[in-house]
Write a protein that binds this DNA or RNA. Structure first.
Length: 324
DNA sequence: TTGTGTTTTATTGCCTCC
DNA sequence: GGAGGCAATAAAACACAA
């Protein structure tokens, strides 16, 4: 062993006793019998989880020496010296040895020293080989486990993404509805403004509040829609075209009474105590773009297709790293 | 047969625990 | 300080297509 480690130095007296009690005709039974080991470890799961080498061999009647790469007799000599390591030569374990080790691993993936020695003795391997096999097996198990975890996470992610996309579509639909409704509202305001203007020309002392039409005709809606689409040609959501048509256009100075953060901002304009000009300004600033930003106003440059990537680059799904 | 990719066995160095 | 675990890695063994 080039590593300079000393293996098997612990519990040597216990191991000797175990080795002396371990007859070759009793393959590994003592490994799995509850209470058969003086180890207090709870990892020995009792007879129900026992695995015997005979079981693994399937009662095929194969000669036991078949499983001993380094055939040796239980003659009391130093076991470690009986497994000469041949540097530069690696030997694969036989299928039966691997099968048995697998079963043992299923029972308990950690290897107590006693178990290691007994396994090694019964399989005709060096304890060190058994330890290495368990170590590598644990590494493989961990890798597999990580892959499974990753698959689960990816499935969850895809699920969430799909949900988010459908919600995003629904959101777009609702935004379009809001746009149509706001068009209607603006049309109402315009109709009311025109009637007020003519009334003012006729009766200058007329009170400002007038009843407005309950609904706009289809033609009016389409007309307003055309205006609205005109509005969208402007980078600003506030249309000077629309305002300049209004008789109460106030040189582009908009009311600052209502702030976007004000929750009452879009509520109940008809019950407002504002003056007519204030009301007009209110109407002009109704549903400003920062409440319902247009899709083209939203910067998705780093969020392809939609905003459902949860802040992560799409190609960066493998960023998750897990430690166990 | 040979080149190449994958799997398995083994080593090394570092870390933690007792 | 010794024993053992783990990550990283080397290298032999194996699988397989060309």
């Amino acid at each position: 062993m080039a590593g300079g480690r000393v293996y098997g130095g612990r519990n040597s007296s216990v191991l000797s006793a175990l080795l002396q009690n371990q007859k070759s005709s009793e393959p590994l039974d003592s490994l799995f019998l509850s209470g058969s080991s003086n180890s207090s470890s709870s990892s020995f799961l009792g007879s129900r989880s026992m695995v015997s080498f005979e079981d693994v061999r399937g009662g095929s009647g194969l000669n036991r020496s078949l499983f001993h790469q380094y055939e040796h007799e239980d003659n009391g000599e130093d076991d470690l010296d009986e497994y000469p390591h041949q540097p530069g030569k690696k030997r694969r374990l036989t299928a039966d040895q691997v099968r048995f080790l697998e079963k043992s691993f299923d029972v308990e993936n950690k290897l107590e020293p006693e178990r290691k020695v007994l396994l090694a003795k019964d399989l005709g391997l060096q304890p060190r080989q058994v330890a290495i096999w368990f170590q590598n097996r644990r590494a493989r198990w961990k890798t597999k486990h990580l892959e499974k975890d990753y698959e689960v996470l990816q499935a969850n992610y895809n699920n969430l993404k799909a949900n988010c996309e459908s919600l995003s579509k629904e959101n777009d639909k609702l935004k379009a509805e809001v746009l149509v409704l706001s068009d209607k509202l603006q049309l109402k305001e315009k109709v009311r403004g025109n009637s007020e203007l003519s009334d003012t020309n006729q009766l200058s002392q007329e009170p400002p509040h007038k009843p407005i039409a309950d609904s706009a005709s289809e033609g009016e809606v389409s007309k307003v829609s055309a205006v609205a689409s005109k509005q969208e040609d402007h980078s600003s959501g506030r249309s000077d075209i629309f305002d300049s048509d209004s008789p109460h256009y106030t040189d582009g100075v908009h009311s600052s009474l209502m702030e976007p953060g004000d929750s009452s901002y879009v509520l109940e304009p008809e019950q407002s105590d504002l003056s007519q000009d204030e009301e007009d300004n209110f109407s002009k600033s109704l549903l400003p773009p920062y409440i319902f930003p247009k899709l083209e106003d939203v910067d998705y440059s780093d969020t392809p297709a939609n905003s459902c990537n949860f802040g992560f680059p799409v190609e960066d799904h493998a960023f998750w790293s897990w430690s166990y």
